[in-house]
Amino acid sequence: MARKTHVQTTINGEQTEFLCHPHQSLSEVLRDELHMTGTKEGCTTGDCGACSVLLDGRLVCGCLVLAIEAEDTEITTIEGMASGEKLHPLQQKFLEHAALQCGICTPGFLIAAKALLEHNPDPTEHEVRYWLSGNLCRCTGYDKIVAAVLDAAQSMGGDTR
């Protein structure tokens, strides 16, 4: 076994360090080393989006990023979305619209939707569907997810943090 590498990074605003093997993905290290299991893994091939995180503000699949690449970057995961007990408006709207059933896709959808609203605070339904096409849901049929994102965008009125 090759030696582990020390990585220093910022996760949800907090300075974090970890040891990893160079072949390990970011989602693997988040879940198995840092025990941040909010980020899910479905396919590990970039198809399902369950592993979505923000890397320096960019929406990426955690399964297709090497953990070692996180050095000196800023990562946002689902664990950083609510402020304490207060849910992010997207989380609140997902609950109100029943936009989740089994929930395995939900963290990925929330992170992807957050990235969308930061990029485009007032998206059309078409833009929401296009942006979320990298996230798969086998339960809801998508309509409720799309409705929740549109409703959240409206309630946030451009304040996308």
Binding site: S52, L55, L59, V60, C61, A112, A115, S133, G134
Partner: peptide
């Protein structure tokens, strides 16, 4: 090419 997640990489 791919989703937004893929586009970013």
């Amino acid at each position: 090419i791919g989703s937004i997640q893929i586009q970013n990489r």
